[in-house]
């Protein structure tokens, strides 16, 4: 089965792809710059905000083409799970401040990020979250390929969404069985690796 990378997006503190001019650093200015109206964004934790925005950047040009959404899979990978929000939730249950926050507790699950993307785009296919020590192109390609193979799916939104220690990185790809007219980039570990090296270099040059 041939698979193609038909679109990709990237977010780090210094760089986004496609390029977006923001009024300030961080995820909220990026949300405002993208120009969408989705108040639920403000209820999300940092990890979900990051993944949500990466998916918005990814799908902006493709929204209208994704009309067979039933079989669209959303598969995310990261290193630190929801640890950023876990630490925040922990502060709400310390003995001196024992008011556990139910809205925060829900976000102590890393897969809520895939749910936010699925809800926003009405993707009812498989949603999965894998925790890996680092961004591993081979693991990503193998997992997505297996998922589409076994579900007879055509399309997957996949990538890396890491929010930890006051830094963040999201790299998302739109994977299809068919390539679109603009690109014929095959979905292989080599191509994914090339893309991520290129994107990280652009970040470091800023």
């Amino acid at each position: 089965m041939e698979l193609y990378i038909n679109q990709y997006s990237y977010i780090s503190p210094k760089h986004t792809h496609p390029t977006v001019t923001t009024a300030g650093e961080g995820l909220t200015p990026l949300y405002r710059a993208i120009g969408i109206d989705y108040p639920k964004f403000f209820k999300m934790d940092n990890l979900a905000k990051l993944g949500f925005l990466a998916a918005e950047l990814l799908l902006q040009q493709n929204k209208r083409n994704l009309n067979t959404r039933k079989d669209i899979a959303t598969i995310c990978f990261n290193r630190s799970s929801s640890l950023d929000t876990d630490r925040l939730y922990q502060t709400t249950i310390n003995p001196e401040n024992n008011y556990p926050s139910p809205s925060l507790f829900v976000y102590t699950l890393p897969n809520i990020l895939t749910a936010e993307i699925a809800i926003r785009n009405k993707f009812t296919g498989e949603t999965s979250t894998y925790i890996t020590p680092s961004l591993n192109p081979e693991t990503i390609v193998r997992t997505v390929r297996q998922t589409l193979n076994n579900t007879n799916g055509n399309t997957a939104i996949t990538g890396w969404t890491e929010y930890a220690d006051d830094t963040h990185e999201a790299f998302m790809m739109l994977i299809n069985k068919q390539h679109n007219s603009n690109t014929t980039t095959p979905f292989t570990p080599e191509q994914v690796n090339k893309l991520i090296i290129h994107l990280r270099k652009q970040t470091n040059n800023k």
Partner: peptide, 8 residues
């Protein structure tokens, strides 16, 4: 595996 795409 499926998603409701409805509520978190």
């Amino acid at each position: 595996i499926t998603n409701d795409a409805n509520h978190i």
